[in-house]
Structures are given as structure tokens and as C-alpha cells.
Design a protein around this nucleic acid. Structure first.
Lengths: 154, 154
DNA sequence: GAAGTGAGTCGAGTTTTCAAACCGACTCCA
DNA sequence: TGGAGTCGGTTTGAAAACTCGACTCACTTC
């Protein structure tokens, strides 16, 4: 009996875990709307442009994953509001970095949506090291606990 | 002739622009592999776990959008390497914030992949304001140029 | 009454995804 | 010279997801 070939399992990775929850065309746009303080079904449908049944399915999935919460705010007729949970609010850095990337590398001109920071300037997201506070640079990272070369050299 | 109803166009948004390019289940995992310095087709297939035809389609799309570049490194037999372009490397903040979120809110235990920063600590991504350097806080942002309440209140 | 709103559901048709097999051009090894 | 293996895909056919439009139900407003 021959030995089994080496297993070809995909990389065990929390990025993939995150994408299991929000890695599709519409989920992050739904979260974006809640981040923009929209909370009603029809507003989410209107502002994302997603089909109604897809919005319903995504809302259900995001509620199951505790990213958003569904609250009854009117009994008769039944009306629901969707709000971000703590986990959902923690997606803000993902949205902010995506927004910057989309602005710089996909859309040429001005960004139609802009955030102003209390410091007085437009808020543009920059990733820093939580420990030392320095801004991210690929050359300053080293990958550990995975069998691959150092990152940022590709 | 009645006036047209108010247009129900989705929100014009660079987050949506970004998601047009990388907003599906596999694209960001492909970029992750290139970020981890994998550059060959079979390695990307193995490490992402995606079907081969999907990897081929995503690589093609990412090349078209100038996120990655395809280089012939052997003529006979023809062999190709995929590398991140500047735009692709700029996706690192998105991957790093997604990685943190997946670690904190999807997977309970230890992160199987870890980055060490040259400061001596593990690199954990934190979003800061590029202008003033302060760490992100939803309460310090104000949305402008879009008809919606302030963010972070949902 | 009539029309509109909010929060969805339903059915049909289209598209995408998936898993597995297949392919051509090579290399390696004996 | 022959066989096995690698690389970078493409093809195939079934399963799943998506999209569009219509529809429902329980109200509220005109």
C-alpha cells in the first residue's frame, strides 16, 4: 500500500476566515451603509444597488455572524433597524483602507465621499504598527509560522 | 408627461470601485499569495484552495486591472511568474486590516500566520490619520459630500 | 377608497462556480 | 526510448448563486 501523497490543503489563514464572512460583492457594501448610519432595508437596497433578495440574504448572514444586529423598532407594522455590532464597527479600518485603495488605484479623479478628521484635515487611512506606532512598510515585516519567503518581495 | 421619479442610483463610492476589482471570494487570496512571495500558478492554486479555472480567471482580471503583472521567466517550456505591481502592493493595508479582523472576530484562537515588525513586536495593523498621525476613532470622523448622517453612530 | 411605504418572499432564467478530467510542452531518470 | 512528473492552463457538465420582476402583507397617508 503506497503512502498518501502530501496533502494539498490551502493555507490556514485569518484573512480567508474574514473573507468567509465579508468576502463577496455585496456584504461590505451593506456594512458600508450601516457605517454611514443607514439602517433600513430599503435604504440599504437603494444605496448599494444590490437586488432585494441578495440584501435580505446578506443581512441574515451578517446577523448570524454577529457583524450586525436586527432590531424591531415598530411592532405595528413590523419595522426593523439594522445596526453594526462591535465586530461590525471594527470593519471600519477595512472599509477605510479599501476606500483609499479604490480612490488611488481604480478611480482616477475626486472621491465623491470624503471623511473629515477632527484634526482639520481629510481623513486618509494609513496603517501603523500597534506596538511602536510606526507607519507600515513592507520591508519592515517578517513572516513567521508559515513556510514561505518574507513578504513584500513579490 | 409626468416627471421621472427620483433616481435610485447606488451610492457613488470608491469602496464599490475597489470591490469591483477585488471584491470576490478569491481575488484577495490570490493577492495574499503574491504578497507572501508565491508567484507560480500551481502555488497559488495550492495555497488558496481555489479551483484552477477560477485562479486563471482571477489572475487574468487582476492583470487587466494592473494589480499584478505576468512575466515569462522561461521560454522553453513557457513558464510564468506573477508579481504585484505598485497598485497590488498598496493592497497590503487592506490585507493587514482584514487579517486583524478575521483574527479578532472570526477565529477564536491563535493566528496561524504572524508578522513580526522590526520594532521587535508582532505587527498588528492599526489605522491612523495620515495628516495628524492619530489612531482612528469613529467619533472623530465626519462625512461630507454625501447626503447621510455622520458615520459611526449606527 | 386609492396610493404609497417598509420589509421582505417567490419563481424563472441567467451566470458563476466547482470538481474533475484533459492537454501540450517540456524535464528528469534510467 | 519510454515512463513519470511538472507547469500552466482549458474543457466539461452539474450545482450553486445571482438577477430581475412581480407579488405579498400590514399598515399610513391623501
Amino acid at each position: 500500500m503506497p503512502t498518501a501523497p502530501p496533502e494539498e490543503t490551502p493555507r490556514d489563514c485569518t484573512i480567508a476566515d474574514a473573507l468567509d464572512v465579508v468576502g463577496d460583492r455585496w456584504s461590505l457594501l451593506v456594512v458600508r451603509e450601516l457605517f454611514y448610519a443607514q439602517q433600513r432595508f430599503v435604504e440599504i437596497v437603494r444605496n448599494t444597488g444590490a437586488p432585494r433578495d441578495i440584501v435580505a440574504a446578506r443581512l441574515k448572514k451578517l446577523v448570524e455572524h454577529d457583524v450586525i444586529a436586527r432590531e424591531l423598532y415598530s411592532e405595528r407594522p413590523p419595522r426593523y433597524a439594522y445596526r453594526l455590532t462591535a465586530a461590525g464597527r471594527d470593519l471600519a479600518p477595512v472599509l477605510l483602507t479599501l476606500k483609499r485603495w479604490g480612490h488611488e488605484h481604480v478611480r482616477g479623479g475626486a472621491d465623491p465621499v470624503r471623511f473629515d478628521h477632527t484634526c482639520g484635515h481629510e481623513f486618509v487611512a494609513e496603517v501603523h504598527c500597534t506596538a511602536c506606532g510606526d507607519a507600515f512598510a513592507a520591508s519592515q515585516l517578517r513572516l513567521s509560522r508559515v513556510d514561505a519567503p518574507a513578504p513584500g518581495t513579490g
